Computed example of a mutant assay.
Amino acid sequence: MTYLMTKRVRRRWTDEEDADLRNRVEAGELLPVIARALDRTQMACSTRAESLGLRTRSTARPARVGIHHGTEA
């Protein structure tokens, strides 16, 4: 069954894909959206971003709400 694998498997990252990945990560796009746009897996994008020194987000995080010290309600 391995002979049915497509050329997408383990293909090298191009300079254009690296730039697109960097731009999308810096714009705050989520990892699943980036992966679909680049036609790569989330793991591939995450690993490549890490090797480029970028931090990715896999889910949207709500605004941080906490206790404000020193103020009274």
Results as ranks from 00 to 15, higher is better:
Thr2Glu: 14
Arg36Pro: 00
Thr6Lys: 05
Arg22Met: 08
Gly70Gln: 09
Asp18Phe: 05
Ala37Thr: 05
Arg48Tyr: 04
Ile34Val: 02
Leu21Tyr: 01
Arg55Ile: 06
His69Gln: 11
Gly28Val: 04
Ser51Asp: 05
Ala49Asp: 01
Val25Ala: 01
Glu16Asn: 08
Arg40His: 05
Leu30Lys: 00
Ala73Phe: 14
Arg24Ala: 03
Cys45Arg: 00
Tyr3Val: 14
Glu17Gln: 10
Glu17Cys: 05
Gln42Asn: 05
Ile34Thr: 02
His68Val: 13
Ala73Cys: 09
Leu4Ile: 06
Glu16Gly: 05
Thr41Phe: 02
Arg55Asp: 11
Met5Ile: 12
Pro62Gln: 11
Thr59Glu: 04
Val33Ala: 03
Ser46Val: 01
Leu21Pro: 00
Glu29Ile: 04
Ile34Met: 01
Ala19Trp: 07
Leu30Val: 02
Gly66Lys: 14
Ile67Met: 10
Thr6Gln: 09
Thr59Ser: 04
Arg57Pro: 01
Glu16Cys: 06
Arg11Lys: 13
Thr14Lys: 12
Glu50Ala: 04
Asp39Ala: 07
Thr56Arg: 04
Leu54Thr: 01
Glu17Ser: 05
Trp13Asn: 00
Arg57Gln: 13
Cys45Met: 03
Ala63Phe: 09
Met5Ser: 09
Asp15Phe: 06
Arg55His: 10
Glu50Asp: 03
Met5Trp: 11
